[in-house]
């Protein structure tokens, strides 16, 4: 096809989006069942991908199975569009599917993510694809798959509450800060992948479809749009998200998730938006933070180079 021709005759050519059609059908069937049973982990015959496990092979297989020529793809790694994992997965799909890519959250139809949910509210019609390392929320409490499967079947989630309680007993508060377990549509306890718990409220009643792919563990699960997603907690220790003492040093945003950046070896540091697109958008709109570069630079698209990141 045209995609193959674009790659040149000297390179090996692939089917559109790399996977063969029977693999796509198998993954597509798993995705449909996953949507029909929100939060339930559907086993699927995960394939070897041209990247190591841990690099998002599950998310890549989900994206490859749903993507079409009309889609616009955004890939983020910890909120950033410009880090290794995001750059290589974006390049992968440009090469094997010739799709349009973007870094703008609102322009994307499919957003593949490693461990963040964009700050900007997602729209109906967008699909968020998560890369998941360990899909089973009960795995570190019970190593046997036969047992965890039975616990899900019987809706037996007491052990998870014991784990959160032990946090309180030991630390005085729930110390789990990422991969914070959620209850989906009142039935399945689900691992939201290692997103910071800051992002958990964004999963609740989202307008977008959320798909989760775990390549090594061979599981796919989903949260349909407008689905109740509740972070587990206790009446006297309600769920709370992280808060930050200072706004983003570059765009001045508050109420967003921040990364700590070390500036020198004398204790200098700054906190900046983890979501690079959100931060750039705000700076383009004229917002400034404590360490913003000069207006002259910022106005000419030089922001990224000047941040020292």
């Amino acid at each position: 096809m045209s995609a193959a021709a674009a790659l040149g005759e000297d390179l090996a050519t692939y089917n559109f989006a790399y996977l063969d059609e029977q693999t796509k059908r198998m993954i597509r069937r798993a995705i449909l069942k996953a949507i029909a049973i929100p939060g339930y982990q559907v086993p699927f015959a995960s394939r070897e991908m041209p990247m190591p496990y841990g690099w998002g092979t599950g998310g890549v297989q989900v994206t490859a199975s749903i993507i079409g020529p009309q889609d616009v793809l955004k890939v983020i790694d910890q909120g950033a569009d410009d880090t290794t994992n995001a750059v290589s997965i974006r390049a992968f799909f440009q090469k094997v599917a010739s799709v349009a890519v973007t870094t703008k959250t609102r322009e994307a139809t499919i957003i593949q993510t490693r461990h963040r949910i964009p700050e900007e509210k997602l729209q109906a019609g967008q699909v968020l694809v998560y890369q998941v390392p360990i899909p089973e929320p009960l795995r570190f409490l019970e190593p046997r798959e036969t047992e965890t499967r039975k616990m899900h079947a019987l809706e037996e989630y007491g052990l998870m509450h014991v784990k959160l309680y032990e946090d309180i007993a030991r630390h005085g508060h729930i110390a789990t800060t990422y991969a914070y377990p959620v209850l989906v549509a009142g039935r399945y306890v689900m691992d939201p992948s290692p997103t910071p718990k800051f992002d958990n409220p964004k999963m609740d009643m989202s307008d977008a479809l959320q798909l989760f792919g775990a390549g090594r563990e061979k599981r796919i699960y989903a949260i349909p749009p407008h689905t109740r997603v509740v972070s587990l907690d206790f009446e006297d220790h309600p769920f709370e998200i992280q808060t930050f003492d200072e706004p983003c040093a570059l765009c001045g945003a508050e109420g967003v998730y921040l990364d700590e950046v070390i500036l020198d070896d004398r204790g200098g540091r700054m906190f900046v938006c983890s979501d690079t697109d959100h931060c750039e958008d705000r700076r383009a709109a004229g917002h400034r933070g404590r360490l913003s570069p000069d207006e002259a630079y910022a106005g000419h698209g030089q922001v990224q180079e000047d941040t020292g990141r």
Binding site: F16, E21, K24, R25, R28, I31, L32, I35, S65, I66, I67, G68, L209
Partner: peptide
Amino acid sequence: AQAVFRALM
């Protein structure tokens, strides 16, 4: 097949 699946999804 992709178009039919996306409609189904």
